[in-house]
């Protein structure tokens, strides 16, 4: 079903695709960015990267792993702290950022870019609707600190 929808989207052209690429944030401080192909990039937010401090280890999910909404898909260790990376969407892990295994510090340097963690082929795109856009997320982090 996800594949049909993704194919449909590609035909709709750039304007819609650009809208779909809006980055969303979770209350667990992850970001997801859905591409036209129904695959979303997943990472942790700059706010989270700052709170974590120097990252020394990233445990990536296994390729092809089926993840459910809220499942743990990885772990990060920094300054004696373990944090889980949760899947804010259900789907299948189609890529992981293996560069993080050698250079976990990428998560601090560029958490919302080169420090992406995994790509997930999304099963239910509507799960993304409940997430925050950047403005709402910034407000959320300001309120909780």
């Amino acid at each position: 079903m996800g594949a049909f929808r993704a194919a449909g989207m590609q035909r709709r052209g750039f304007a819609v695709a650009a809208m779909l690429r809006v980055k969303k944030y979770t209350e667990d401080h992850e970001w997801v960015e859905l591409g036209e192909d129904g695959v979303c990039n997943l990472g942790i937010s700059k706010y989270a990267a700052n709170a974590l401090g120097d990252v020394i280890y990233v445990e990536l999910p296994e390729l092809d792993m089926e993840v459910g909404f809220g499942d743990t898909v990885g772990a990060v260790e920094s300054v004696k702290s373990a944090s889980d990376i949760m899947a804010p969407v259900s789907g299948k892990v189609v890529a992981t950022n293996e560069a993080l295994e050698e250079k976990p510090g990428l998560l601090n340097q560029d958490p919302e870019g080169e420090g992406w963690i995994a790509k997930i082929k999304v099963e239910h795109e509507e799960e993304l609707d409940g997430l925050m856009d950047e403005e709402a997320y910034i407000k959320f982090t300001e309120e909780s600190s």
């Binding site: 667990d28 004696k80 373990a82």
Partner: peptide
């Protein structure tokens, strides 16, 4: 000391 961070 050790820490666990999750769900805010």
């Amino acid at each position: 000391s050790a820490y666990k961070l999750a769900r805010n």
